[in-house]
Design a protein around this nucleic acid. Structure first.
Lengths: 224, 224
DNA sequence: GTTTGGATGAGTGGATACAAAAATCCGGTG
DNA sequence: CACCGGATTTTTGTATCCACTCATCCAAAC
């Protein structure tokens, strides 16, 4: 699965990896607010290592766009403006559109069964209300793109999902339940069943951009 | 400009930055073959610093996909299989297609004048034969996308250009002069002049994928 | 009251030192 | 002659230390 939860990160081989997973998880959950400065020593103490591996983790997080790193000025949580969020959704729309276009020839009955299962799980998570829904939603999409057998594409999409995850969580917590989600994703499945790559691509693009506009409509409390 | 040449990297503020630019440049020029192991101490000695900043540069290069980093096993030059190269072009096609769609409303007369200038420079560089053409070509595209005012999109596209640069250079050196390049890019400009975003997007996608198939046809000596 | 300059301290970047892991070498064994 | 196992060497990963940068604060001048 492309989006692993790293709650028990101490299993990882290197300290740097542990620091990376720990911080990524924290940032995905929105534990640190945008603009908050991450102090290497504090983080290092939290997970029981020295500053060095934490610093290297910072670099990776910076490459992921989750933090901003300026020379001699430390590491601050990145945070996205509304414009930047919209940009991410624009990019997502074409990348995920491409992904579904590519998987069209590989779709089988089992695929659709699995998609139904994932959709059901997503729905249930939504009813319960914990922000687990966000993960189930990612899982649904990840399963789809995973079939494309395009490692770089998959990773890029996953990185974008991670980047906007805190905002998805805030949004989801706020609107309680995205009622439209069920039919949205059912539409998607239907488009896949149509067998027409161009159609599926377009529907996926619209699905992504639709989410973007919902998120944008929902006020703009996270504009930095 | 999105693609700066970093020949005199000693101007940069931090040692890590210097190491990063130095290595990126070397990798772009194809100075190290895929699979070649990069020894931190050697690099550090070359540019007069300790292993530490070089290690951090490795992490950034790894995020860019230029090297592969495995725990306790060092840093090797990444190299792309033919499949991976094609994947990069697939991703490029949709991202660059999106970019031109977005810039449509911003096009002015000055834009087209600048594009003509850039096209001319590209052409001249092609006649001279130095692999400067690759840089001029990147410049042409970068100018176009730069107008989109989508920083993330621009950076992602630039990163992909960097990743395939060594292969573009090999290809260009081999086929001597991409004769079709002139009309290819003129087509692109004409599509932009049409004012139809969907058309421009499609033409750009085809332009990118066309390059991909040219590169793929030209044998596969770089398959790992 | 506002601004500017410098002292002070916190924090970052980088080098060296040390520990741990791989890779290599070498002799023994089947 | 090929293969296996252990010691040695090489290389990586982490910790600690030092130098330097930047931010803050206070005082003096305007």
């Amino acid at each position: 699965m492309a989006f692993q939860s790293a709650s028990n990160a101490h299993l990882s081989s290197t300290a740097e990896e542990e620091a990376y997973l720990y911080l990524q998880q924290a940032l995905r959950l929105g534990r640190y607010k945008p603009g908050h400065r991450l102090i290497p020593e504090a983080i290092a103490a939290e997970i029981g290592m020295s500053r060095m591996p934490v610093r290297e983790a910072f670099r990776r997080l910076s490459a992921d766009g989750l933090v901003t790193l300026r020379p001699n000025r430390g590491c601050v949580v990145a945070g996205l403006t509304l414009d930047q969020i919209n940009e991410v959704f624009e990019i997502r729309s074409v990348l995920e559109g491409l992904a579904v276009r590519l998987i069209m020839p590989r779709l089988t009955l089992e695929t659709f069964e699995e998609l139904d299962r994932l959709l059901l799980r997503m729905e249930r998570a939504g009813e319960i209300g914990g922000s687990d829904w966000v993960l189930r939603h990612q899982e649904f999409h990840a399963y789809l793109y995973g079939m494309s057998e395009r490692p770089k594409l998959i990773r890029q999409i996953a990185a974008l999902h991670v980047a906007i995850e805190p905002y998805m969580r805030i949004w989801f917590d706020y609107v309680d339940k995205p009622l439209s989600a069920r039919e949205e994703h059912q539409n998607l499945i239907d488009a896949l069943k149509s067998g027409d790559g161009a159609v599926a691509e377009r529907v996926m693009q619209e699905h992504v951009l639709g989410t973007a506009s919902l998120l944008a409509d929902f006020a703009t409390p996270n504009r930095r």
